[in-house]
Nucleic acid binder design. Structure first.
Lengths: 163, 163
DNA sequence: GCCATTCTGTAGTGATCGATATAGAACGAT
DNA sequence: ATCGTTCTATATCGATCACTACAGAATGGC
């Protein structure tokens, strides 16, 4: 997971993986069907990890607070030196499906919120904006931006929901 | 340029290039030093093309109008079917330097504007936000989003400068 | 102790990568 | 017509890619 996260699917070779894991290629192929399957399992593991930025655990919050929590989490995690920079899912070109799903989840979350309150913002559009910004933040972090720099962008982005 | 734009540097092979150009490998190497140099020339050509989104030609505009012009241009160009989706510079991981330069140019442009008017927004932060959004929009377009979808995100993003 | 099973690493598969040595074709000048 | 230059393509380089056949080591049951 860490190697795919760091270098992406195409730039991570079987040789890289076996060397890092300290095993030989046949052992790796005994445990995983092929490179693609291994990658998919790594992505699944990533998405289940706390490093993954989601709208989870935002019950009872306003739309603005949901975005704030997500952007906060992204600013902290994407620049963290405890693991590779940025987001695995938001960096890998082939994971468009995962990104679409995340967008849908965020939209559902924002729609829920709007139901109980005064609302005013199109949940789909807001989710698309949030997802777009997360992808941008992920790339910014990979370019070397630190948590402070990410947070400045996130703070500005929060202005799309006034108050 | 088109192939690098479409697939990125690593995913574009010399074989892809010679096949597309209808020439042989030695002919290509006679014209360009190596793959890396050819790529750099392609990037330079891209950055000089009208498809490249910049703050150029925005004299006399307010900060908000500068962003609006850039986001408008991105929404139109990134989803255009006349060429590959997204932005070459904002898609290629190794072009962080170019992105930093674009950010600096935008910041300078926004600072200029603020000088002559009431201002109120940190030009650096605003430029970082704009650049982050452009990278996100580029990825969104590559994921299949059409001009309309990009424009919805761009319209929302413009709210960071009220009025 | 002995055999069968399971695991491991060595070595190598064909394919493709970026890059090139070399030989022949095309062309202009004399 | 002949030569010298310039261009082209064929064929190949060593390296690396994802992947695997196979042989030997380790392990557990009897």
């Amino acid at each position: 997971m860490r190697l795919f996260w760091e270098r992406g699917y195409e730039q991570t070779s079987i040789s890289d993986l076996t060397q890092e894991l300290g095993i030989s290629a046949p052992s790796l192929y005994a445990a995983f069907e092929d490179k693609r399957t291994l990658f998919e399992e790594a992505v699944a593991r990533y998405e289940a990890s706390p490093q993954s930025v989601t709208a989870a655990g935002t019950t009872g919050m306003s739309q603005r607070e949901v975005l704030r929590v997500m952007f906060d989490c992204a600013s902290r995690e994407y620049a963290s030196r405890a693991h590779p920079r940025g987001c695995l899912v938001n960096s890998e070109p082939e994971l468009a499906g995962n990104r679409a799903q995340n967008r849908a989840i965020t939209a559902a979350r924002l729609r829920e919120v709007a139901d109980g309150a005064e609302e005013g913002n199109d949940a789909e559009a807001l989710a698309a904006f949030a997802q777009t910004l997360l992808v941008g933040l992920s790339a910014y972090a990979r370019d070397g931006a630190d948590e402070e720099q990410l947070r400045r962008v996130a703070d500005l982005a929060l202005r799309v929901i006034p108050e």
